[in-house]
Amino acid sequence: MAAETNQSDFAYKFEAPILEVEKRIKHLSERATSRHEDLSAEIEKLERERDRLLEEVFSNLSPYQRVRLARHPMRPQPMDYVRMIFTDFIELRGDRRFGDDRAIVTGLARLDEHEVMVVAQHKGRETREKVAANFGMPRPEGYRKALHKMKLAEKFGFPVVCLIDTPGAAPSLEAEERGQAMAIAENLFTMAGLRVPIVIVITGEGCSGGALGVGVGDRFAMQENAYYSVISPEGCAAILWKDGERAAEAAGAMKLTAADLIEAGIIDAVIPEPIGGAHRDPQRAARELERYLSDVLDELRPVPVGGLLEERYRRYRELGVYRTLPSTEDVESPSV
């Protein structure tokens, strides 16, 4: 679990100077303890330096740096948050169709007085777990399991909490054979009319139909360093720039950060992360997420189902940007 992992295990280049200072702080603290030296002045100086560096690096993140934070190997994953936020979690695994997909974990859990159905996308952390979870790329049976559990939630009146973190739906022969596209479509269709509140939070990668397949609901938030886009920046660069190396440009062009998406009116809230990213302080990140979930569940609980579904419809109905051509432009375009 991220919460217990030493964060110096992995670092991106832009994090390195900060980790370097932290290493020196740690070294000095150890020396101070073992040799009973008073190094507090030096330590304080280094701590100030660290805070300055954090501010410098993380107040100016590029969109692609955020994508990389969203993919950070030490970043807490949805199931880490489930453990930190919810109590009495009971995993329910059966899709009743084909098999259990470890890339989506579903089950019942409590948050305060709310009994909810959790739908958590899962990447895994150790190699074996990652392979089992197909690196977070759900197969059709994952989407069908989620759907089955959401219908269970509907039957018993539990709100649904979907935590999203996926590089996309699985692209494979088997996924196509078992109807990947149809499974996602069915979820979009059914979630639009599910008669219980649905809360969506992207905690890491929100990539493409793979994210949307469990991502239709009444409230929609992103953690500060999560991203949401129609295709990965690498995929977009490969197609539109014919150069996968230009992912950083593609990340900028696609307006995929939480700040971009709130401005576009697609999400309602940005959930703050500790400076330096959720992996630097998973507990604190979890508290922020918990506060958000608790607030929106309280808010949605009393809403009558008719109004809830009407609002949900309107939310998606209004998304899109188009224009009406002036009649002169019509004349300019040649006929078929």
Binding site: L188, G209, G215, Y228, L261, G320
Partner: peptide
């Protein structure tokens, strides 16, 4: 999807399915 419209494009999947659900 129309990549140049990024998340707006993605949202069309949800919007169209919501309308079809009502029709159905």
């Amino acid at each position: 999807a129309r990549m140049q419209e990024s998340a707006y494009s993605l949202m069309q999947m949800a919007k169209t399915c919501a309308a079809l659900k009502r029709l159905s």
